[in-house]
Design a protein around this nucleic acid. Structure first.
Lengths: 190, 190, 190, 190
DNA sequence: GATGAATGAGATTTCATTCAT
DNA sequence: CATGAATGAAATCTCATTCAT
């Protein structure tokens, strides 16, 4: 019904199937079941749809993170955060690729920061809280470290699921290393 | 002389100037000073040039890392590694974007792992050596952590230079946080 | 007005002037006064226009045959049929060639039968009527003989006009032989 | 070994597989295992290979016709001629198509007459002999009728094998009609 | 004779964009 | 708001032909 949403859905599906380059507005409108001209009533270009897709994906992750019990330890929270990102990257491998290359291809790149904000905020809160409750003993800038952590989790997940590093069987081993590294990094247990 | 190299060079330069989308094969051949058809003798499509570019970029970084004195401490080496990646990402912002979206758009994705191998190996050696000389006291898997570290450095650099996070003035502050986080992560000073 | 018809007309005219090989889609659209992309809204390839042309040509011949008075003798009708096919092959030499090689080059070959049907039907009717009125005394299968006759007329006309057999001056002599042969073949005058 | 023959063979095979239009000199030389430039030492263009192919095909038919016993009756000879052409068209359906459209596409068309000469001559001799021995009582011009007959046999065979007329099961029925028609046409048995 | 990398004119094809309905 | 036929600039891609080796 909602034409805007139908455009987004069609774009996701087509890009997943054929890649961004080969997905054209003509294909999108055909797949969305709308007229050629209608596209332009909602988006100026094909790449302008990407932020909407990214937003949708970030929202999914954020919802999962929000369900984590606030009273849990930072160790546990970070564990679950890693699990969530890994699960998401695994499930939406191609979509992740899509969002990445979609965003990097345009001036929309700058929006990345804003779209990711909720995730950074979530980690930020976790760190700040841990600082207060003595969960960690860190001198680090929470805002910056939040980004570093999110980046390291994502890039590790990508290396595994997108770039084919390591047999899938070792995923747990990698996740454990990553978790230890991050907790160490935050100065936990010192 | 070498036509293949001239195609790669032209592709890099044009993509840096105008972005991937707007760089066409027609532009490339014109800039490379070769005939239209000659392009197809070396690459089947525009995107097929990307792995060659990625390789070249990794080579540049690797050469810089190789120049670091082997006798330096791991702390110093990691510092210089961060500096190198940041400098590179800053200098070749667009090329970085290019490599990223170029690689993710094709089946070549899987090559990424292989192309990056030299960089992972360099960090791996640094960690292993530090373990031996007592520079760090880590139980972590060096192969995995090498990838985590490289990922965290790159993603942080990208957030700064590509996604416009943080005013440039704070770059040193971010780098310090990143360095501390990594060294902590490795279990240094425990 | 009708873009499809304009494409067909332009294709015919250009192929008559320059041959099929040298007629390009670019030429066709220019001559038809439409945009390059418009061609592809109606036909996927140049050769896909051929069946439409064949149909048009058969229609022309069929109209001429239809004008022949039904009350004439089979001898007269066959004479006029020969004259019509010869005149047509002579006038549209290149178009005939075009239709032939156009149709044989694609999967459309099978359509030939269907397109030619009206001509076969016309001869079929003539033979059947002659059988009834005693014009001929033939045991032959009218459907099959209709095709044999049409084939012999066309191939003879082609030998003369396309393959340059016999000086033009002898055309009447050839036509007479052909007519006698066909009438004999049908068992006339026995 | 013989490069000329290898070009011809490659051209036949490739045209049978992909059609004339889509067969390029590049494909031919690759398939023939010779260098790009070598082609031009033997043929000026792709279509210039066609007469060589036609010649090859006509030679095959002519050899079969030559094996027919000279002492047989014209009725028998014509029967065997029909059988030979039908068998050939059936076996080399695609090659026939190829030769046809290949020849009609160029100025080489005029060579058709010359290439076919041996076949016309064979029928010519048969008719002339029959005239002498009283096998037929025809006033027709043997040279012209030879062409008419050959044309009618070929076009009928094509209708059956190329254009899909009539179920294969009726082939004998068609051949019988054709034979009767031709013998009648020649004035036999009057 | 034979080679095959290189050429580049020109063909096909695509597709974002418009605009009258 | 919505449509979709038409556009045409510009892209990709082909391929006959050449020529230095």
């Amino acid at each position: 019904m909602d034409k805007r949403q139908r455009i987004i859905d069609a774009t996701i599906q087509l890009c997943l199937e054929n890649g961004i380059e080969k997905t054209t507005i003509s294909h999108i409108v055909k797949h969305a079941g709308i007229a050629q001209g209608t596209f332009y009533l909602y988006f100026p270009t094909k790449l302008a749809v990407m932020p909407a897709i990214a937003e949708q994906m970030v929202t999914i992750i954020h919802e999962k993170l929000s369900q984590i019990d606030r009273s849990e330890s930072i160790t546990m929270k970070m564990q679950k955060c890693i699990d969530t990102i890994f699960a998401n990257t695994s499930a939406y491998q191609e979509l992740t690729k899509l969002v990445y290359s979609g965003l990097t291809q345009t001036e929309e790149v700058k929006q990345w920061e804003k779209i990711y904000q909720p995730l950074y905020d979530w980690i930020f809160e976790v760190i700040e809280e841990a600082k207060l409750t003595g969960g960690i003993n860190s001198e680090l800038d929470s805002g910056i470290v939040a980004r570093i952590i999110m980046g390291s989790i994502e890039s590790t997940a990508e290396q595994i699921y997108l770039f084919d590093y390591a047999p899938t069987i070792q995923v747990e081993h990698v996740k454990n290393n990553l978790h230890t590294f991050i907790m160490n990094g935050l100065g936990k247990n010192i």
